[in-house]
Nucleic acid binder design. Structure first.
Lengths: 100, 100
DNA sequence: CATTAAAATCGGTAAATTCCGATACCTTTG
DNA sequence: CAAAGGTATCGGAATTTACCGATTTTAATG
C-alpha cells in the first residue's frame, strides 16, 4: 500500500468524479448487456462516454486507480468492468484518521 | 476545501514525513527557544534541518500543506511555527470513509 | 539606522503528469 | 480464420511539479 501512489491517484478531478459515479452506477450509467453493476461494476466504454475524455485516457486513469487499489477490475468477455474497492477506501479513511 | 489540492499536497513522500514528524514534535525535534510544541508547533528551520531539503523547498512545502488546511502557521517574532491541523485531518479521514 | 537571522518569494532546469491519436491486443462472431 | 468491438499500450506535446540557488521581505537587536 504505497501512500503516495494512492494520493496521486486521487489528485485529479476527473478521477475523483469517476470514483463518485461508481458509487451509484445505476444512477450514472445506462443498463449494460453483460454483468451486473453490483457484482463487477461498469464497463470502460460507459465511463469513457460519461467522462468526455478519450478512450486511452480513461483506460489509463482506471488502471491507475486500480494500481492504487481503489478500484477492482473484472474481465467479462470483451469488456472490462471496474468497481470501487470499498474495503480499501474505508481502510484509507481510517488510516488518515489515526495514522497519517 | 478543494479535494484535489489536499490530495496533491499529500502526494509527496517528504511532505508525508513532515506531517508524521509533527505528530510527535518532542520526539523528532530539539527543544526550541521560543514557543511550545503543543501550542504553535515547530519552526521552519528545525523542519528544514531534519528534512535535508533546502530552506526554500521546505518553506514551499509547508505553505502548500497550509493552503490545503493540513497545517496551521503561527508567526512568533522572526520565526514561523507550523503544527498539524488535527481537526481538518480527522475531517478528511471521515470524508474519505463516507463521501469519497 | 545598519546588521543579522529567519522565512518567503523569484527564476530556473529536470522530471513527472495530463491528455491525445495511433496502434496493438483480446474476445466474440460470422 | 477474418472482421469487428472493446480495451490496453505506445509515443508525444503541453503543462505541472520537484527541487535548487539567489534575492527579498520581515523582525529583532545593537
Amino acid at each position: 500500500m504505497d501512500q503516495v501512489e494512492i494520493f496521486k491517484a486521487l489528485s485529479n478531478k476527473k478521477r475523483l468524479e469517476i470514483l463518485a459515479w461508481l458509487k451509484e452506477p445505476e444512477k450514472h450509467f445506462p443498463k449494460q448487456e453483460c454483468g451486473e453493476f453490483s457484482k463487477t461494476g461498469v464497463c470502460v466504454g460507459h465511463i469513457q462516454q460519461k467522462s468526455g475524455l478519450t478512450q486511452s485516457t480513461v483506460s489509463e486513469y482506471l488502471s491507475m486507480l486500480q494500481r492504487a487499489d481503489l478500484l477492482i477490475a473484472t474481465r467479462l468477455g470483451q469488456w472490462t468492468h471496474y468497481k470501487r474497492n470499498e474495503e480499501a477506501i474505508k481502510k484509507l479513511g481510517l488510516h488518515i484518521q489515526d495514522e497519517l
